[in-house]
């Protein structure tokens, strides 16, 4: 297991460097930069612009700038945001928390809804319920998350039951611990639902096909032949095995979830990593963009790693040797 961990973590390093370098090069190769954007403002004199350019090191060659940035990362420094003049880590920290909270809660919601529905639908295969839900799941998979987000905002405005936008109330700092949690949850419900709905649809379909496949396996027939009650057959033999691909999905679904979260954040105006990245990208604030991309990458890679490890823990047929061979 240690060998597996070491290998995976070692692979992450060139991976991260590759991704960050492509982003860095893309940001730098296109004409214009943060200072050039400011040059449109006639109140800022050319001398100040020159001085800023030198201060941020924007006048230096690409490779040197990237090497410097990388050197900073090696020392756990993400650099200073050009627009906000603060350490990027202070900007990203709270945002990462919000995004991770959103992604995790929508994942939890997805599972809590998709697994029971998938089981019910599979048990009652071809019933009206099954057909209706299958059709609805197609609908759910097809409606884009940002469109759902618009509808959710409309619903929140119309009903007044949910706050519109933001991840916390303005008086958040003054609240005690429990009110804080309640406040966060209140702001999280709609975005998590919006983000999770497509996942519910696709996971439900996966669960259904998994169960239908396993239902006729030899060991299930054996379990029935032994005279085990149907509920035990269903939960201990069928469901237990049907869950394995979900663990793998959890890791790879994380990529979609993070991406979807970025979009939902932008539409619903939530203070997450996605919205931060979007704004930073508009301003050509290179350190901030790079910090966000790096964070996204690390979250994704760690998520995939955790999913693989969870799979090894859950499925006795998978162990670290087989994982390594993949």
């Amino acid at each position: 297991m240690l060998r597996f961990l070491a290998r995976r973590i070692l692979i992450m390093i060139p991976l991260t460097i590759g991704i960050t370098f492509i982003s860095f090069a893309a940001m730098s190769l296109i004409p214009g930069n943060f200072v050039a954007n400011l040059a449109l403002d006639p109140r800022i004199s050319p001398q100040v612009l020159k001085q800023m350019e030198a201060e941020f090191g924007l006048d230096q060659p690409l490779m040197l700038r990237y090497a410097r940035w990388l050197w900073g990362i090696a020392h756990l420094r993400l650099g200073v945001s050009l627009a906000y003049r603060v350490d990027v880590i202070h900007l990203i920290g709270p945002r990462v928390l919000n995004t991770v909270l959103l992604a995790l809660s929508s994942m939890a919601l997805t599972w809590l809804l998709a697994i029971p529905i998938g089981v019910i639908v599979a048990v009652r295969q071809n019933s009206i319920l099954d057909r209706t839900l299958s059709f609805l799941s197609f609908l759910g998979m097809s409606v884009p998350a940002f469109f759902l987000a618009f509808l959710a905002i409309d619903f929140a405005l119309w009903s007044g039951w949910f706050p519109v936008g933001q991840t916390m109330s303005p008086d958040y700092a003054a609240l005690d611990l429990w009110s804080r949690i309640a406040d966060r949850a209140d702001h999280l419900i709609l975005p998590a639902l919006v983000l999770g709905l497509a996942g519910v649809a696709s996971l439900m379909r996966l669960m259904r096909s998994q169960i239908l496949e396993i239902k006729n396996a030899d060991y299930v027939r054996t379990a029935r032949a032994k005279g085990l009650p149907e509920s035990i057959v269903l939960y201990k033999h069928v469901l237990r095995n049907a869950l394995n691909p979900f663990v793998t999905m959890a890791g790879y679904g994380l990529a979609d979830l993070l991406g979807g979260a970025a979009l939902v954040e932008s539409v619903m105006n939530l203070q997450g990593l996605g919205l931060l990245l979007l704004n930073a990208v508009m301003k050509r604030d290179v350190p901030l963009v790079m910090g966000s991309v790096l964070m996204g990458t690390v979250l994704l890679l760690v998520g995939n790693l955790l999913a693989d490890m969870a799979l090894a823990a859950v499925d006795p047929r998978v162990n670290f040797t087989t994982l390594e061979a993949q």
């Binding site: 893309a26 979807g260 996204g296 990458t297």
Partner: peptide, 14 residues
């Protein structure tokens, strides 16, 4: 394993 949407944003913005 690219965080595709973040990457897409970073590339599209330029």
């Amino acid at each position: 394993s690219l965080p595709s949407f973040y990457f897409l944003l970073a590339l599209a913005a330029v």
